[in-house]
Design a protein around this nucleic acid. Sequence first.
DNA 1: TATTCGTGGAC
DNA 2: TGTCCAAGAAT
Length: 374
Amino acid sequence: MPRFRAHVMCLGKPMVGLRMDLAAALLAWYDRHARRLPWRARPGAARDPYRVWLSEIMLQQTRVAAVIPYFEKFVARWPTVHDLARARQAEVLAAWAGLGYYARARNLHRCAQTVSETRGGAFPDDETGLAELPGIGAYTAAAIAAIAFDRRTVAVDGNVERVLARLHGVREPLPKSKPTLRALAADLVPELRAGDYAQAVMDLGATICTPAKPACGLCPWNTACAAHRDGEAEDLPARAAKKERPTRHGVAFWLERAGDRAVLLRRRPQEGLLGGMVEVPGTPWRDEPWSTDEALEHAPVHGAWRPLRGDVRHTFTHFHLTLSVIAATADADKADGQWWCDRRDLDDAGLPTLMRKVAKHALKLLTPPATRQP
DNA sequence: TATTCGTGGAC
DNA sequence: TGTCCAAGAAT
């Protein structure tokens, strides 16, 4: 690391000099290469804490490319935190459908109501106050405080952990190395431009210091990077072995109303997987496959149920799911908590991805080829 | 501290 | 096809 070492020796205060030089180099890189993202203010323009907050919640464990269309949809429909607070939870969940981790949407709505109703629409401007709000944890509080209010915080996310593990050659696997990486990250945060710095590390991690095949040749920190020097950038950070995912099984009941062929839907309970989301009625999910007779005990109505060939496969974070689908036509009225959804409205019904797969599967098998859409 | 929460792109 | 894992939080 010739360039940095020379600078350090001149200063006579090695760690301070190194830190200043690294932060300055990263900010200079950021000034040239910052991605233009919908939630980022133009240089010199005022930051909108609502947009910063909304983007940070959406970006939790979610890639930028997946977030952008959702962010645009949300700010167009709910331009301020007051607008979002006044929305029905069902509307917010439907708009969030497909983005995953639905507790984020429930907490987002609660948070908007708190900020709107008890704070006049003003978000807390420091880390401590932000962290008291639902859905805002240690990382997000630090990130919002830095990006929206230019507080000098230490926002440590997956990008920062990866970049710091490589920069310092930390071989201890995550998550045990978290405290070490946080301390190393804290040493680098500059006094000025804390918000830009936080976003710069994100961009570095997302575009240069990527998990696979990092572009070390383009990295503003490559001359200081221990992993690059030792040829092990792609091997860091190490991670504890993850345990294998079991496969669970369920049966979905595709019920069409006689006449207009509207489809029966219902809402899942607030807690747990897909909490509060719309679903096609079904059995519980368990480790063993279901026989048809067994599944029918959970059917929403009695009728001439017949299995559809094939099944629907979906993978969640911690298990695989295989759903078989059985179908029937009913004259019966809906039960409490359930409703009929016109076939043409299914795309806008707020179905999570698993349930969209169920609908696609059933529609394909139950729609006569002659009338199927081209 | 460990588990439970989605989804889709990259490989 | 399967595996990895991404701007984490809540419990």
